[in-house]
Amino acid sequence: MEQTSILETRHLTREFKGFVAVDDVNLKIRRGTIHALIGPNGAGKSTFFNLLTSFLKPTRGEIFYNGQNITNMPPAKVAHLGMIRSFQISAVFPHLSVLENVRVALQQRLGTSFHFWRSTRSLDKLNDEAMHLLEEVGLEHFSRVLTVELPYGRKRALEIATTLAMNPQLMLLDEPTQGMGHEDVARVTELIRKVSENRTILMVEHNLSVVSNLSDTITVLQRGTILAEGDYATVSANPAVLEAYMGSSAHD
Protein backbone atom coordinates (compact mmCIF):
# COMPACT_ATOMS: atom_id res chain seq x y z
CA MET A 1 0.00 0.00 0.00
CA GLU A 2 2.64 2.48 1.09
CA GLN A 3 5.02 1.64 -1.68
CA THR A 4 6.35 5.12 -2.27
CA SER A 5 6.61 6.47 1.26
CA ILE A 6 8.90 4.75 3.75
CA LEU A 7 7.78 6.83 6.71
CA GLU A 8 4.48 8.52 7.33
CA THR A 9 3.04 10.44 10.25
CA ARG A 10 -0.67 10.98 10.75
CA HIS A 11 -1.91 13.78 12.99
CA LEU A 12 1.27 13.54 15.04
CA THR A 13 0.96 15.76 18.10
CA ARG A 14 3.01 16.27 21.22
CA GLU A 15 2.06 18.57 24.05
CA PHE A 16 4.20 19.63 27.00
CA LYS A 17 2.02 20.92 29.82
CA GLY A 18 -0.31 22.93 27.61
CA PHE A 19 2.39 23.94 25.14
CA VAL A 20 1.98 22.19 21.79
CA ALA A 21 5.47 21.48 20.43
CA VAL A 22 4.33 19.38 17.49
CA ASP A 23 0.82 20.05 16.25
CA ASP A 24 -1.05 17.68 13.95
CA VAL A 25 1.83 16.97 11.57
CA ASN A 26 1.09 14.82 8.52
CA LEU A 27 4.35 14.05 6.78
CA LYS A 28 5.35 11.52 4.16
CA ILE A 29 8.97 10.66 3.41
CA ARG A 30 9.41 9.21 -0.06
CA ARG A 31 11.65 6.18 -0.32
CA GLY A 32 15.11 6.79 -1.75
CA THR A 33 15.12 10.55 -1.26
CA ILE A 34 16.96 13.01 0.95
CA HIS A 35 14.38 14.91 2.93
CA ALA A 36 15.33 17.94 5.00
CA LEU A 37 13.42 19.37 7.90
CA ILE A 38 14.10 23.05 8.51
CA GLY A 39 12.56 25.81 10.52
CA PRO A 40 13.43 28.55 12.97
CA ASN A 41 14.56 27.73 16.52
CA GLY A 42 11.75 26.30 18.60
CA ALA A 43 9.80 25.14 15.57
CA GLY A 44 9.57 21.63 17.05
CA LYS A 45 12.14 19.93 14.83
CA SER A 46 13.95 18.12 17.63
CA THR A 47 10.72 17.07 19.32
CA PHE A 48 9.46 15.75 16.00
CA PHE A 49 12.70 13.82 15.56
CA ASN A 50 12.44 12.32 19.02
CA LEU A 51 8.85 11.29 18.34
CA LEU A 52 9.79 9.54 15.11
CA THR A 53 12.38 7.39 16.87
CA SER A 54 10.23 6.67 19.95
CA PHE A 55 12.55 8.57 22.28
CA LEU A 56 9.40 10.58 23.08
CA LYS A 57 5.85 9.29 23.06
CA PRO A 58 3.29 11.31 21.09
CA THR A 59 0.23 12.76 22.80
CA ARG A 60 -1.83 11.88 19.75
CA GLY A 61 -1.29 10.56 16.26
CA GLU A 62 0.46 7.67 14.61
CA ILE A 63 3.70 6.81 12.86
CA PHE A 64 3.98 4.25 10.08
CA TYR A 65 7.25 2.79 8.87
CA ASN A 66 7.02 0.66 5.74
CA GLY A 67 3.28 0.51 6.36
CA GLN A 68 3.77 -0.84 9.90
CA ASN A 69 2.47 1.11 12.86
CA ILE A 70 5.50 1.80 15.08
CA THR A 71 3.93 4.45 17.31
CA ASN A 72 4.32 2.54 20.55
CA MET A 73 7.37 0.48 19.75
CA PRO A 74 10.42 0.77 22.06
CA PRO A 75 13.31 2.68 20.40
CA ALA A 76 15.67 -0.32 20.33
CA LYS A 77 13.09 -2.31 18.33
CA VAL A 78 12.62 0.54 15.87
CA ALA A 79 16.37 0.41 15.28
CA HIS A 80 16.16 -3.26 14.37
CA LEU A 81 13.62 -2.45 11.66
CA GLY A 82 16.31 -0.44 9.89
CA MET A 83 15.53 3.08 11.03
CA ILE A 84 18.61 4.53 12.75
CA ARG A 85 19.01 8.00 14.15
CA SER A 86 21.94 10.22 15.00
CA PHE A 87 22.06 12.94 17.62
CA GLN A 88 22.77 16.65 17.77
CA ILE A 89 25.89 16.13 19.81
CA SER A 90 28.18 13.64 18.15
CA ALA A 91 27.03 10.23 19.24
CA VAL A 92 30.16 8.17 19.68
CA PHE A 93 31.55 6.02 22.46
CA PRO A 94 34.59 8.11 23.48
CA HIS A 95 36.56 5.45 25.37
CA LEU A 96 36.25 2.73 22.78
CA SER A 97 38.61 2.73 19.83
CA VAL A 98 37.33 3.93 16.46
CA LEU A 99 37.18 0.35 15.24
CA GLU A 100 35.35 -0.80 18.37
CA ASN A 101 32.74 1.92 17.90
CA VAL A 102 31.71 0.44 14.57
CA ARG A 103 32.03 -3.09 15.89
CA VAL A 104 29.60 -2.44 18.73
CA ALA A 105 26.93 -1.91 16.08
CA LEU A 106 28.03 -4.91 14.04
CA GLN A 107 28.33 -7.36 16.91
CA GLN A 108 24.59 -7.66 17.47
CA ARG A 109 24.29 -9.94 14.52
CA LEU A 110 26.59 -12.52 16.14
CA GLY A 111 24.00 -12.92 18.88
CA THR A 112 26.71 -13.05 21.55
CA SER A 113 26.15 -9.65 23.10
CA PHE A 114 25.12 -11.17 26.42
CA HIS A 115 28.04 -13.62 26.45
CA PHE A 116 30.15 -12.35 29.32
CA TRP A 117 32.27 -15.50 29.36
CA ARG A 118 33.64 -15.04 25.84
CA SER A 119 36.76 -13.08 24.95
CA THR A 120 36.51 -9.86 22.95
CA ARG A 121 38.77 -11.65 20.50
CA SER A 122 35.64 -13.50 19.36
CA LEU A 123 34.63 -10.17 17.80
CA ASP A 124 37.76 -9.96 15.64
CA LYS A 125 35.98 -11.71 12.78
CA LEU A 126 34.02 -8.48 12.34
CA ASN A 127 37.16 -6.36 11.94
CA ASP A 128 37.31 -6.62 8.14
CA GLU A 129 33.79 -5.42 7.75
CA ALA A 130 34.34 -2.66 10.31
CA MET A 131 37.46 -1.55 8.45
CA HIS A 132 35.51 -1.50 5.23
CA LEU A 133 32.94 0.82 6.78
CA LEU A 134 35.72 3.04 8.13
CA GLU A 135 37.22 3.24 4.65
CA GLU A 136 33.89 4.39 3.34
CA VAL A 137 34.00 7.45 5.60
CA GLY A 138 37.76 7.96 5.27
CA LEU A 139 38.72 6.85 8.78
CA GLU A 140 40.71 3.73 7.93
CA HIS A 141 43.96 5.24 9.29
CA PHE A 142 42.35 6.03 12.63
CA SER A 143 40.99 2.58 13.46
CA ARG A 144 43.14 2.09 16.56
CA VAL A 145 42.80 5.62 17.89
CA LEU A 146 40.78 6.16 21.03
CA THR A 147 37.67 7.96 19.82
CA VAL A 148 37.91 10.76 22.38
CA GLU A 149 41.07 11.92 20.58
CA LEU A 150 39.40 12.39 17.17
CA PRO A 151 38.69 15.92 15.92
CA TYR A 152 35.01 16.87 15.85
CA GLY A 153 34.38 16.44 12.14
CA ARG A 154 35.91 12.97 12.22
CA LYS A 155 33.65 12.00 15.09
CA ARG A 156 30.64 12.79 12.94
CA ALA A 157 32.10 10.67 10.17
CA LEU A 158 32.57 7.84 12.67
CA GLU A 159 29.00 8.25 13.77
CA ILE A 160 27.85 7.81 10.21
CA ALA A 161 30.03 4.72 9.79
CA THR A 162 28.49 3.25 12.96
CA THR A 163 25.02 4.01 11.67
CA LEU A 164 25.88 2.37 8.34
CA ALA A 165 26.92 -0.74 10.23
CA MET A 166 23.26 -1.24 11.07
CA ASN A 167 22.54 -1.28 7.32
CA PRO A 168 19.70 1.18 7.74
CA GLN A 169 16.96 1.75 5.20
CA LEU A 170 16.18 5.09 6.74
CA MET A 171 18.79 7.32 8.40
CA LEU A 172 17.68 10.18 10.57
CA LEU A 173 20.42 12.76 10.97
CA ASP A 174 19.98 15.45 13.59
CA GLU A 175 21.96 18.52 12.46
CA PRO A 176 24.85 16.60 10.88
CA THR A 177 27.02 19.67 10.19
CA GLN A 178 26.34 21.62 13.35
CA GLY A 179 29.40 23.27 14.89
CA MET A 180 31.71 22.41 12.00
CA GLY A 181 34.25 24.43 10.05
CA HIS A 182 33.87 24.86 6.28
CA GLU A 183 36.16 22.01 5.36
CA ASP A 184 34.33 19.55 7.59
CA VAL A 185 30.95 20.73 6.32
CA ALA A 186 32.00 20.01 2.76
CA ARG A 187 33.34 16.59 3.71
CA VAL A 188 30.25 15.55 5.64
CA THR A 189 27.96 16.85 2.88
CA GLU A 190 29.76 14.68 0.37
CA LEU A 191 29.59 11.78 2.78
CA ILE A 192 25.84 12.12 3.18
CA ARG A 193 25.39 12.21 -0.56
CA LYS A 194 27.54 9.11 -0.89
CA VAL A 195 25.70 7.07 1.73
CA SER A 196 22.28 8.15 0.46
CA GLU A 197 22.51 5.67 -2.41
CA ASN A 198 19.84 3.03 -1.97
CA ARG A 199 18.75 4.70 1.25
CA THR A 200 16.36 7.28 2.51
CA ILE A 201 17.65 10.13 4.62
CA LEU A 202 15.71 12.51 6.79
CA MET A 203 17.76 15.28 8.33
CA VAL A 204 17.26 18.30 10.48
CA GLU A 205 19.72 20.94 9.31
CA HIS A 206 20.28 24.62 9.90
CA ASN A 207 22.87 25.15 7.21
CA LEU A 208 20.79 26.16 4.19
CA SER A 209 23.58 25.65 1.67
CA VAL A 210 23.84 22.03 2.80
CA VAL A 211 20.08 21.72 2.56
CA SER A 212 19.91 23.19 -0.93
CA ASN A 213 22.82 21.03 -2.01
CA LEU A 214 21.49 17.73 -0.83
CA SER A 215 17.77 17.58 -0.44
CA ASP A 216 15.12 16.43 -2.83
CA THR A 217 12.33 17.61 -0.57
CA ILE A 218 12.24 20.22 2.15
CA THR A 219 9.64 20.57 4.84
CA VAL A 220 9.51 23.84 6.76
CA LEU A 221 8.21 23.61 10.29
CA GLN A 222 7.01 26.58 12.27
CA ARG A 223 5.42 26.50 15.73
CA GLY A 224 4.95 22.78 15.43
CA THR A 225 3.07 22.76 12.13
CA ILE A 226 4.08 22.37 8.51
CA LEU A 227 4.45 25.76 6.90
CA ALA A 228 5.57 24.69 3.45
CA GLU A 229 6.86 21.67 1.57
CA GLY A 230 8.54 21.10 -1.77
CA ASP A 231 11.92 21.31 -3.45
CA TYR A 232 14.36 24.09 -2.62
CA ALA A 233 13.20 26.45 -5.38
CA THR A 234 9.56 26.12 -4.37
CA VAL A 235 10.15 26.50 -0.69
CA SER A 236 12.58 29.39 -0.92
CA ALA A 237 10.14 31.34 -3.10
CA ASN A 238 7.31 30.88 -0.63
CA PRO A 239 6.50 34.24 1.02
CA ALA A 240 5.39 32.60 4.26
CA VAL A 241 8.78 30.89 4.57
CA LEU A 242 10.63 34.12 3.89
CA GLU A 243 8.65 35.81 6.60
CA ALA A 244 9.24 33.02 9.09
CA TYR A 245 12.97 33.31 8.55
CA MET A 246 13.12 37.08 8.74
CA GLY A 247 14.51 38.36 11.99
CA SER A 248 15.80 34.92 12.92
CA SER A 249 19.58 34.60 13.05
CA ALA A 250 21.51 34.74 9.78
CA HIS A 251 22.31 31.48 8.04
CA ASP A 252 25.20 30.86 5.72
Binding site: T53, F55, P74, P75, A76, K77, A79, H80, I84, R85, S86, F87, A91, V92, F93, P94, H95, L96, E100, R103, V104, A105, Q107, Q108, L110, T112, S113, F114, H115, F116, W117, R118, S119, T120, S122, L123, T162, M166
Partner: peptide
Protein backbone atom coordinates in the same frame (compact mmCIF):
# COMPACT_ATOMS: atom_id res chain seq x y z
CA UNK B 1 38.20 -9.55 33.97
CA UNK B 2 36.60 -11.79 31.36
CA UNK B 3 33.25 -10.01 31.67
CA UNK B 4 34.86 -6.62 31.16
CA UNK B 5 36.72 -7.91 28.10
CA UNK B 6 33.84 -9.75 26.48
CA UNK B 7 31.24 -8.93 23.82
CA UNK B 8 28.94 -8.16 26.74
CA UNK B 9 31.60 -5.88 28.26
CA UNK B 10 31.80 -3.93 24.99
CA UNK B 11 28.07 -3.28 25.05
CA UNK B 12 28.25 -2.34 28.72
CA UNK B 13 30.98 0.22 27.98
CA UNK B 14 28.92 1.58 25.11
CA UNK B 15 25.87 1.96 27.35
CA UNK B 16 27.90 3.63 30.07
CA UNK B 17 29.47 6.07 27.61
CA UNK B 18 26.38 7.02 25.61
CA UNK B 19 23.14 5.35 26.54
CA UNK B 20 20.84 7.05 23.97
CA UNK B 21 23.24 6.09 21.21
CA UNK B 22 23.35 2.47 22.39
CA UNK B 23 19.54 2.45 22.30
CA UNK B 24 19.51 3.93 18.81
CA UNK B 25 21.80 1.12 17.69
CA UNK B 26 19.19 -1.37 18.81
CA UNK B 27 20.37 -2.35 22.29
CA UNK B 28 17.70 -2.89 24.92
CA UNK B 29 19.92 -1.37 27.56
Amino acid sequence: YRTVHSPFGQVLTAIKENEPRAISLGYQV
